[in-house]
């Protein structure tokens, strides 16, 4: 049996290849937050039950706390820090602010990532589709009504 040591991997994070050395047991969420300092990705339940840790893996939203970082070797990850284009916010981000789709904000990065991913694959969702896309997200402050309004407004704006 091989002795567990650190493994070198390369993950493209927010468009930049990042070379990382990590233990196999490190989750993607942990390496983003602690290895790369991208603390916008949040860990709340640490079990995939709240989706606060959502990032994009090759463009699809996933729970980064439920994935080993080593499994992302060679793949592309987008985090909340990589969503805006420079100073220009993503339409979902703008709409979240305008519609007050956030309160304490801890679930917000995950909500934003899943909402933006929805608009990538379905530019004109109805409220039901928005709710389906966000079914895995918990918000303890209760922002859901404003989140639905914000995503629908962002879809309007994008088109």
């Amino acid at each position: 049996m091989a002795t567990p040591t650190k493994t070198a991997i390369t993950v493209t994070v927010n468009g930049r290849p990042r070379h990382l050395e990590l233990e196999a047991r490190t989750t993607l969420a942990e390496v983003l937050r602690d290895g790369l300092g991208l603390t916008g990705t949040k860990i709340a339940c640490d079990r995939g039950a709240c989706a606060a840790c959502t990032v994009w893996l090759n463009g699809r939203p996933v729970c980064s706390c439920m994935m080993l970082a080593i499994d992302a070797d060679g793949q592309a990850v987008t985090t909340i820090e990589g969503l805006a284009q420079g100073e220009a916010l993503h339409p979902v981000q703008e709409a979240f602010i305008e519609h007050d789709a956030l309160q304490c904000g801890f679930c917000t990065p995950g909500m934003v990532m899943s909402s933006a991913a929805l608009l990538e694959r379905d530019p004109h969702p109805d409220a039901g589709a928005v709710r389906d896309a966000l079914a895995g997200h918990y918000c303890r402050c209760g922002t859901y009504p404003h989140v639905v309004a914000a995503v629908l407004a962002a879809a309007e704006r994008k088109s």
């Binding site: 989706a51 939203p61 729970c63 899943s114 896309a133 895995g136």
Partner: peptide
């Protein structure tokens, strides 16, 4: 089953 984020993995 599960949530969209989990179903993707």
């Amino acid at each position: 089953a599960a949530s969209p984020e989990l179903r993707n993995v």
